Simulated scan of single mutants.
Amino acid sequence: MNELGGLNRDLGLVIILQLKMKGLYCHLAESNEDVKFVFQDKESVPHVYDHYVKLQVKVCAFSPLNIKLLMELKLQEDFLPIGREVAGVVLEVGPKVSFFKPNDGVVGILPLDCKESGLSNTLLVHEHSLVKKPENVSWVDAAGTICDGLRAYMALHTHTHVSAGTTVLVMEGANPFGTIVIQLAHHRGAKVISTASTVEDKMYLEGLRPTVGIRQPLVARVVNLYDGKVDLVDSCLEETGGLGVNIVIDCGVQLYSKEDEPVAKQHLPHKHDILSLLSVGGHWVTTVENLQLDPPDSQFLFRKAATISFLNEEVWQLSNMHQGKYLHILKDVMEKLSCGTFRPQLDEPIPIYEASVAMEMVQKKQVKKKQVVRL
């Protein structure tokens, strides 16, 4: 009986090891709409060369896959690698590597054209895609914050100039990205307003407090949009004394009338609401890649001298012109995480055998917290 138990344990260990040698990939159907996430055998990591490092992955975090962007860039393949936000230990470095040495803890975002899944046990990564992980930051927090931190910096620093005295509206701030934006904006001295689509989201936002300094709420006002009794424009104008919001960061908007929008978008604000609550010289940072503005909308923006920016964090991967600035942002994200300015909204780490189910939920936007896999 003991021998049989030992055999079962050995067999289980072999299965786990086999899983670790596989990577998670997205298999596209002919319509490119239905996707399946499957494990595929991974080829052994080639010899380390030039500026590349061999990385042992500890934790991998998930973000939705932008299939449309990959198609436009002609990076679409039958099987697309999943899991680009990774944290791990450097095992070996190439002869031209200058930033890292073996046993360094690192974190980074794999390039768009990377052929390997972040759920692989070992990866070959260019050193310019990684930064060092602070010793007091866990692997889970590092991988779960790096991408949302990058997006938050782009929204508040690359596209706009947040500072003390500005007012920032974060739409649906209870999600992982919105949480990081709120913390960064408050850290810079801005007044933060956010919206909530459920009672749970409202309670979460009202309970946000800084870990350092005065324990005042991070969000000055939470506008509840779930009961239809509160007007977003009126609330923002009231909070700003009628001047309007300096910076708006959305997570989607309604482009048409409510009857023409799908149910999933009916809780989002209409684009005219965003334009109406913007201040003179305000900035609207949108995540909507197909945003359409009619001539009256453009005239409205012109009269306010306001601007619209499109938030696409992949621009750093598409052009290496500002590689130094990109790495500086990643380092600053880790520093903010190290000193407690950032507290990511993460779910409990999941084992690798549940990764395909978790990624399906991430792709369908059915999760509220960041999903991370511990290898």
Rank of each mutant, 00 (worst) to 15 (best):
A185Q: 00
F37I: 04
G324K: 13
G144F: 04
V14N: 12
L184F: 03
V219C: 05
K54V: 12
R215F: 07
K54L: 11
F310L: 15
L75K: 15
N32I: 10
N312Y: 11
V367R: 09
L255A: 08
D297W: 04
M71V: 00
R215M: 10
G5F: 11
L7S: 07
V222M: 06
V14D: 09
L110Q: 01
Q18R: 05
H161A: 12
Q366H: 11
V89S: 10
G213R: 07
N103W: 00
K132M: 13
K115W: 03
H159N: 03
K132P: 09
I214A: 08
D273N: 07
K370L: 13
G178D: 02
V192A: 04
Q323C: 13
C147L: 08
I15G: 10
F79H: 13
S194C: 01
T240Q: 13
H322T: 05
L311N: 03
Q216M: 07
K20F: 04
T145S: 15
L119D: 02
A358K: 09
L130K: 00
M359A: 03
T307A: 07
P111F: 01
V285N: 07
N8D: 08
L70N: 07
I247W: 00
L110G: 01
H161D: 11
S298Q: 09
N103H: 14
D273R: 06
H322Q: 13
K115P: 01
V373M: 09
P81I: 00
I16L: 08
E360D: 06
H159L: 04
K325S: 08
L24V: 01
P349N: 11
R151V: 01
F39Y: 14
L277S: 11
Q40H: 08
P262I: 02
H283G: 05
T211F: 06
D250H: 06
T341I: 12
L337R: 03
P296F: 04
V131A: 14
L73K: 11
A196H: 07
G324V: 01
G105M: 04
S235Y: 02
D273S: 08
V248P: 05
V170M: 06
V233F: 05
K115F: 00
T122L: 14
A174D: 01
K258R: 13
W316K: 11
V253C: 14
G118D: 06
T307I: 10
Y204D: 11
G165Y: 08
P210L: 00
P95E: 09
T145C: 10
V253T: 05
E77Q: 15
V367S: 15
Q292E: 12
L275K: 02
H27W: 10
T167A: 07
K54H: 10
A61M: 05
S120N: 12
S44I: 01
V162N: 02
K58F: 00
G178C: 02
P269S: 03
G5N: 15
G5L: 13
S129N: 14
P344R: 10
Q371Y: 08
V280E: 11
K74Y: 03
